[in-house]
Nucleic acid binder design. Structure first.
Lengths: 350, 350
DNA sequence: GCGCCCATCCTAAACGATTTAACGAGCGGG
DNA sequence: CCCGCTCGTTAAATCGTTTAGGATGGGCGC
């Protein structure tokens, strides 16, 4: 005889109360360990609840309390391993805090994002944690917050939206990568990936330019191969750069997937990364260390800012009036085997 | 003046009704395009709803209808790329069907799984789609279904649980891999990874044994290096196999992560996969094709059975009495560069 | 002109919890 | 003997929907 089956319909608070000869008020209070109910009663109630297999209906509770303990997470992508890590970190931190995750994926499509987040909103999450799809506008986000739901941005940021944000200092990260290459003696450095339609894209490109500028090197648009953060972009990008009259000797990438693609492209061109050409990735995915040759890359501390984003959401739920917070972690360069001094061709072209 | 702000509190069905001089019943029906409400009224209501920024409260609706349109997804892991692909496929299929995903991750820990799924259950999902943590028992799952929630298993299966299931034919898949190696001339074939504590572990090991048996080869326990589906297991496993007195010339792996680790191990031992040693992975992650050398592996059709699992869940929601269904997709061997005939040492040892 | 039938809309009762104000029972003190 | 206080419990309102079961009124056939 299982705890569950007994009688028709599921076991509800009211049924439990009736069976115990108590009011629903007492049972409700007892189940939540209220100090006003007598110890003996509390124990009796909790035991009965367990025995009868009672499982609370949070929908009903939320209706009354206007709090769901749900956090809606809106990601623009989920297959990219870096976002998986982010999702894992968010889920972990939120579930520890007693929140449950409602998931929505926008596939980098604003219309779909609007639809998805709109649906999530109907469940009245206490907060949204969002990595906005490319080209998301301020008013798109504002619409979310309209119903009083806390909004936190993670990884990407819609500039001027005025919501909390946790992410990585993209500009500094790419500058770091460029500086590393400059230090090795490179003078012509390309950039692969990056789309100006996202904040990360703009900022990493800015970091590239800043890195060049800091070394007194000119910015040449021809050395930038734009595209989404996919392997294919990297492959095509490196081939484009190599085909130039005066090709670069090194390149930084928007992310590791771009870099992996670029490594394939190099190989297809008969070149060896870390000898004939230097390459720096971005993210430090687990594969980066295992690739052959191992990828020099920038560690963006995703799990860390994931936890921080979760914390920001919790804080804003607790106090909607608190000042807006922006947390920008400083990334770290991880030097491995795909970077080396430029091949000794001529000291400098021309 | 935004659609939202006007007045105190959010805009509810009742408010909308009062403002329109209609009853909540009519407004509710109008919003859901019921044919019983006059066209003119319907249009008027829907326009007002849009203008006032009305967003329905599904919690309240669910309370009445006993249907939430939520599907709880319980995964034991989320970082492993194959489960990410699964999650993406599930989310996509479910959201197309108008369902929203509530996510729970068990970290391969039964206690945590019980806790997590228990919490999810409080939101009364219409169905659970679960890849059970190792060592999950039938009664663990039965407890979930107790409240009348549909349960579908995916990837992994708790034998004898009697719930719907969609996954890959693991036994056939590994047999395929072994047969491929046998066909190339290998006679001593090891297995790396697999834990007997999961259905996939048991079945892939069974496939290994079946493959050997089909070729008339003996099963030698020493040639199996057990461990979880991580890169590290693969690395340690291959080194263990190579250290044997009479090492195998090839191995199949539990999954691609194991295989990636094994490739690293081979490299560390100064051996080249596809020449000195043959290796077959399992899953066909995107990286498999890009690794150097490209990994021969088994494609398990994850996105496909993910969609099927979603379909099973929808079907069971629609008809709880329908017969239990088990869908087992036949995996496909993908031959790349890590497999070749055994090195010409002696035709056969001894 | 009289019913009758539709098309439309409304009243009111759920759904399952939380929460506030009130109530009854003891009990000690004046 | 009564008052007032504490402790434990309860009645009832409430959250925002859906929906069964009327009510209303106009058009139409006879």
């Amino acid at each position: 005889m299982d705890g569950a089956g007994g009688g028709a319909g599921r076991v509800t608070l009211q049924r439990l109360a009736r069976e115990l000869g108590l009011s629903t008020a007492t049972v409700s209070l007892a189940l939540r360990d209220s100090p006003v109910v007598a110890d003996a009663t509390r124990i009796k109630v909790q035991e009965a609840a367990r025995a009868r297999g009672y499982v609370a209906n949070r929908g009903a509770a939320s209706l009354r309390t206007a709090r769901t303990n749900i956090v809606g997470i809106g990601l623009h992508d989920i297959i990219n391993p870096s976002f998986t890590e982010l999702l894992a970190a968010l889920e972990e931190a939120l579930s520890v805090a007693g929140k449950t995750v409602l998931l929505g994926v926008s596939q980098e499509d604003v219309a779909r994002q609007t639809r998805t987040l709109g649906t999530l909103a109907e469940y009245r999450p206490d907060a949204f944690i969002v990595s906005p799809a490319a080209a998301t506008t301020v008013s798109d986000l504002k619409a979310l917050a309209a119903s009083g739901i806390a909004v936190v941005q993670v990884t990407r940021e819609v500039e001027g939206s005025g919501f909390d944000f946790a992410g990585s200092d993209d500009t500094a990260g790419v500058s770091l990568a460029v500086a590393h290459l400059v230090g090795l003696g490179h003078r012509r450095i390309g950039m692969i990936g990056s789309l100006p339609v996202t904040s990360t894209g703009r900022r990493r490109l800015a970091g590239y330019k800043a890195g060049l500028a800091a070394a007194g090197l000119p910015f040449e648009p021809a050395l930038v191969a734009e595209g989404p953060g996919l392997r294919e972009t990297g492959r095509a990008g490196i081939l484009k750069l190599l085909a130039l009259d005066d090709p670069p000797t090194a390149a930084v990438c928007f992310n590791d997937l771009n870099a992996f693609g670029a490594l394939m492209g190099l190989q297809a061109a008969g070149l060896t990364a870390g000898r004939d050409f230097s390459l720096v990735g971005y993210d430090d995915l687990p594969e980066a260390a295992l690739w052959h040759p191992a990828l020099t890359t920038v560690f963006t501390r995703i799990p860390e800012y994931g936890r921080i984003a979760a914390g920001l959401a919790l804080a804003r739920i607790a106090d909607p009036a608190r000042p807006v917070e922006r947390v920008l972690l400083t990334p770290r360069l991880v030097v491995r085997d795909t970077t080396a001094p430029p091949p000794a061709r001529a000291g400098r072209p021309r």
